[in-house]
Design a binder for these strands. Structure first.
Lengths: 194, 194, 194, 194
DNA sequence: GATGAATGAGGCTTCATTCAT
DNA sequence: AATGAATGAAGCCTCATTCAT
């Protein structure tokens, strides 16, 4: 009877939000700009999100979720730490090359002191790191004194940092090819004993 | 005499700004709160800064400057890459323990896609990395294929990332003692060949 | 058949509107809440009313109409002023005990400077007062200098005021029993000479 | 040094608020209309009031306060219930003739189910009624079974109701002269026992 | 020089109303 | 006939900035 919800609109809102948050940060991204960029009425947003915070939170949550899901699958299918690090890095580089703003978005919000990651997601990340640690120690790939934090820093934070440095052209090297993957993996490999 | 009072005011404004930006982010920090925290009239601020952006920019610039100066001195006095990495890490941890907000401030703004570091500062950082690279290769401490970027990432970005992960209690480990320094240096050491 | 369903819908809309206006005031009552409370589509409302104002206006009109009709019947069946006052008060108390929201609704809107009572209804009320006055003077129950206004104030406005003061617990007395009816009537009786 | 607060602006805001609330009710009165009527910037309001509710609340509070103060003085200076009622009525009529909107304002908000009078003020009103009751019973002017509520209704609510009926031209009698005072007092007198 | 009163553009949000289905 | 998705004007409010004093 009534119009059907136009899913492309919601998709456009998400894209526009991602874009604006990356361009101007959470505070600088305005609802009116997001709406106009998405080609949607300002008020329309509020039919799907409680407000700006909800919108951005939701977007962070789902992006992170997708990433975590990929990581979990990755852990299910690969068993050596080296393999895992490599696949993880390739995954992140893959996103960066196809949807650089998605990586920027995660990067910007993960470094914002006002945006806490959902507790459940923090726990899932922690669990992933524990799995890597346990399997790595069992197989003898990594030393016994390596902890989750280092795995996270080297496996996730470092590649993201690396990618964004490139996207920002900080060292005037904007490519993100096989050579860059190698560079990132080099650090990961160092972590692995012997 | 009048000058002295002024300098105190400017100093208080800088402290207040640092504090508010860290607590509430750039967008959330309001001029009126900053002024009242600094015990200064709102209008006074505009006699010294063109506006809020200018104020924060200036603060980022001077904080970064101080840090870069310290790094330059460090390079003048220490010659092995290992030493440099260690002193650098100790410097950053020292700041984190005494003025955690300064580290948070740098962390937050360096990751913001709005706040580009001054070109001159970027160059100075680049030069510092080049010096480390050159001396490291000359002394045989690091491999020939290491580049500035990696030195920056491992020597600066990684420790800052590490510190902030702790300040955020992401892995429920908030201490920043000798043990944590060791952990950070371990990665640095891995970079150094054989 | 379809008609029957319609009537229920309209009825439900009226109930929902009454409820929401009483709970949140005219401005605070939203069409979407009213529609959802009535189990009706928002758009449906606009097939029967020009808008929110029209809806509420109509509701005020019909409620007032019902009350005026009751008063007219009352006047047809009772002849002494005293009797009329008593029956009138009992009628109002009756409504207040069974449908307190109806009394609140009338109370709220009759005192709102935006909602003018329809001219035709004002005239009917005036006529009712005139009838009471004329019959009262004829029978000698009330003084010749009593006018319509006083009859309205004492017979209608005063009881409604009294009831709402109780519904608001202004004097911490929320009951509306025989004792309260007596109290109200006492004032009415005073109006009646000798 | 800086500009001095322009008290006339605050005064104009108060007047404009009173006016708009009377004309359109609390919900219908908009900040932007109030500000423009007062000839003041919209944001200026928020330097003195937390928001719209605070502004209107404050205005209701102070208006009511002034009235209650007058009533308290009145009670201090006049001792028979009759005198008190008369002076009270004259006071209210006086306001109505000079500042009709003040009376309308009180009338509108006292009948709004969303605006509760401050508890302290409710208590002061209650105390005033108690004083009248006690003194009236002591002097034998009023019956022992009269309670505070009736005193309030007859002494305050009834005159206000009466005045507003006139201001609304409900019975096409807009004058508020000596004759109308007499009419109101007649009801009051009835309350007083032989 | 310094103050803080005042401004007003622009932010977020609500909601009566329209209209494609 | 009925729905409810979509709109956008308008509401409340914040706050960087200006400027009279």
């Amino acid at each position: 009877m009534a119009r059907v919800i136009d899913e492309t609109k919601i998709e456009r809102i998400k894209e526009a939000t991602l874009h604006m948050v990356v361009q101007k940060g959470y505070g600088g991204a305005s609802i009116s700009e997001i709406a106009s960029l998405a080609g949607v009425a300002e008020g329309y947003l509020y039919r799907h999100y409680k407000g700006k915070a909800d919108l951005v939170h939701d977007l962070l949550y789902s992006n992170l979720n997708e990433l975590i899901n990929q990581l979990e699958q990755l852990l299910d299918n690969h068993h050596t730490v080296l393999e895992i690090f490599e696949q993880l890095t390739r995954t992140l580089f893959g996103i960066a090359n196809v949807q650089p703003e998605r990586i920027k978005f995660l990067y910007v919000l993960m470094h914002d002191y006002n945006f806490k990651i959902e507790e459940s997601q923090r726990e899932r990340i922690l669990n992933l790191c524990t799995r890597v640690k346990v399997e790595g120690i069992k197989s003898g790939e990594i030393a016994a004194d390596i902890d989750e934090e280092e795995i996270y820093l080297i496996g996730v934070a470092y590649p993201i940092q690396f990618i964004n440095l490139h996207l920002k052209n900080f060292f005037n090297q904007s490519e993100l090819g096989e050579g860059e993957i190698k560079k990132v993996l080099k650090i990961g490999k160092e972590l692995i004993k012997k």
